[in-house]
């Protein structure tokens, strides 16, 4: 768990290394909308053609953000869960018209197998969307979304977030001091180690509470809570953000309307339907892919703009 602020290296953002992707520079509202829509698509359109092309698209989006390692790692990690879904579905469910094989009273149907594979694909897409999300939607951006809706909660989350690395540093100090008294977590049985760990946490709790309440008093002394506060806006909502958000909402609305008509959803139970897509199905697919590929499109647009201007 090196992620937990053990090193004091500055974040990329703090050292002035802003992300070079156009997508990352959009307003957080647009970025968040994109992810919500992408996740919804992966859950609504349960059809092999849709899911495979969505999967490819989200891999491309991850490659663009130079997430190769994480993408592979996540796919490996999700493999077990995917296998579980693929295996469990036919065993649990014996509805369906096309029986493949029967053994020991369990009927394996083509329908259940198909369903299992589609669901596994959907899960893979969901996991990969989150790889990209963790990269593009930093914690600052996430909290920005809620600053105006719920300032108290955002403040609370911010403070808690700041406490985590601080407490870990403090905990290391406490651990080193207490070791001289014989309280240590490194040796002994699980029980003894948990006991020692909890003693250390107790010291940390008292120490931090005393410190933090002093901080709170100094906040009050400087006027926190005396009147309604304004908030600093880190991100601007530009015209481009407005256009993109409108397009995203309109496009996805149309897609969801199609989905409600039953387009882009393979009929599985009680009998496997045809995989064939009609014209509206293809149109809907194109729309879904256009929305999913937003980061790629933006990057391509900037590239064209740059080369044509030269």
């Amino acid at each position: 768990m090196d992620v937990y602020g053990r090193s004091r290296a500055r974040s990329q953002r703090a050292s002035g290394l802003k992300s070079q992707l156009v997508f990352d520079q959009l307003n957080p509202i647009v970025i968040f909308a994109y992810y919500v829509i992408a996740i919804a698509f992966s859950m609504v359109f349960i059809h092999p053609t849709y899911l495979v092309s969505e999967l490819l698209m989200i891999i491309a989006v991850n490659l663009l953000a130079k997430n190769q390692k994480k993408t592979l790692g996540t796919l490996q990690g999700a493999l077990f869960m995917m296998l579980f879904i693929v295996v469990m579905n036919p065993i649990m469910n014996n509805h369906g018209a096309h029986v493949i094989v029967t053994f020991g009273g369990t009927v394996i149907t083509a329908e259940a197998v198909t369903y299992g594979f589609l669901m596994a694909l959907s899960l893979a897409i969901l996991m990969l969307i989150f790889v990209s999300y963790n990269q593009s939607m930093t914690n600052h951006k996430f909290l920005y979304l809620f600053v105006r809706i719920s300032p108290q909660l955002t403040l609370l989350t911010m403070i808690t977030m700041r406490f985590v690395p601080l407490f870990i540093r403090r905990f290391t100090n406490i651990k080193n001091v207490q070791r001289t008294r014989g309280v240590q977590m490194e040796i002994g049985s699980v029980r003894a180690r948990s006991h020692a760990g909890m003693r250390l946490m107790e010291v940390l709790l008292i120490n931090s509470l005393v410190d933090a309440l002093q901080t709170a008093d100094s906040m009050t002394a400087r006027g926190y809570g005396s009147q309604k506060r304004t908030s600093y806006q880190r991100y601007r909502f530009t015209q481009r953000d407005g256009w993109l958000l409108t397009l995203l909402i309109a496009g996805s609305g149309l897609c969801f309307y199609f989905a409600k008509q039953g387009i882009g959803r393979l009929a599985i139970y009680p009998m496997l339907g045809s995989i064939h897509l009609d014209q509206i199905g293809w149109l809907c697919l194109v729309l879904v892919l256009l929305i999913d590929s937003l980061p790629l499109l933006l990057e391509g647009w900037e590239y064209l703009w740059w080369t044509l201007r030269k």
Partner: peptide, 23 residues
């Protein structure tokens, strides 16, 4: 809610989150 109370809750939540590390 007062500043003291927000901080009090924040400390408890942070302690709960941090305990995942040493263990």
């Amino acid at each position: 809610i007062r500043a003291r109370e927000i901080i009090f809750i924040a400390v408890l939540a942070a302690i709960a989150a941090v305990t995942r590390v040493p263990f």
